[in-house]
């Protein structure tokens, strides 16, 4: 059992055309910038993978990370809750030019759909969005005198996530609010790739503090000094 024998290129080499890829992070917090850039480098070198469906809460900021991935044209469809940021031009230009499809999902529903995907729950009911434009064509049902909207699970072929410490078994801990969607996406994908600041031998993470148990994780890649989207943008970086 050793899930740590991958470099950044190997970790994303088998993502196929048309794949659904979940990418962790909320804005720049917990965003796996190096994994995204590795995927982008592969696309630039080979033209693959193309026609991706991307699942992320946002739509990138500036010309690094998710923004750069959207800008390069490999993303066909985006499922998110909030595709606006200080500089989300990469997405908004493609959206206005109808070069990218958008499925907008309320944030709590988005999180729960991913959790449900990982937990084997095909659908659930929520009061969120009832009576709004985002409820169109969705079944409703009454429970204990109140109406609820049916929402379906969300699953992926791959998840690219960021964590703080990982071990050979794939057990993960996170850093502050960088946790966000990462543990949920780890559960919801066929193949979960985690970049971590530090890989440690099995036994070094106290089992009491494991947030994502290794059963949900396929590959662990060490990126010891990860870049933060916010700092890259403040420096005017373009990837």
């Amino acid at each position: 059992m050793d899930k740590t024998k991958f470099n950044l290129a190997e970790a994303v080499v088998d993502i196929p055309d048309g794949a659904t890829v979940m990418i962790g992070g909320f804005g720049g917090a917990g965003a796996p910038i190096e994994l995204i850039h590795s995927l982008l480098e592969r696309f630039r070198a080979t033209g693959h993978p193309k026609h991706l469906t991307l699942v992320n809460n946002n739509a990138g900021n500036g010309h690094v990370g998710l923004g750069a991935l959207i800008e390069c044209g490999t993303v066909k469809r985006l499922i998110c809750s909030f595709p606006r940021s200080v500089d989300s031009r990469a997405f908004s230009q493609k959206y206005r030019a109808k070069e990218i499809e958008l499925e907008l999902v309320p944030q709590g529903t988005f999180a729960e759909r991913i959790r449900a995907g990982g937990a084997g729950i095909p659908a659930f009911y929520t009061p969120t969005a009832l009576g709004t434009d985002l409820a169109r064509n969705k079944p409703v049902a009454e429970f204990d005198g109140r109406m609820y909207l049916q929402e379906r699970w969300l699953k992926a072929d791959f998840a690219l996530i960021k964590a703080e410490v990982g071990d050979e078994h794939g057990n993960l801990t996170y850093r502050m609010a960088g946790r966000n969607f990462n543990p949920l996406m780890a559960m919801a994908a066929q193949c979960t790739v985690a970049q971590v600041r530090r890989i440690v031998p099995a036994g070094r993470i106290d089992p009491e503090t494991v947030v994502t148990p290794g059963i949900f994780v396929t590959r662990v890649v060490e990126v010891s000094d990860p870049q933060q989207e916010e700092q890259l943008n403040r420096a005017g970086a373009i990837f």
Partner: peptide, 14 residues
């Protein structure tokens, strides 16, 4: 507009 909803729809019913 580019639509963006975030967590507002969840918050108002929670």
């Amino acid at each position: 507009d580019v639509p963006a909803v975030g967590g507002a729809m969840d918050l108002v019913h929670g």
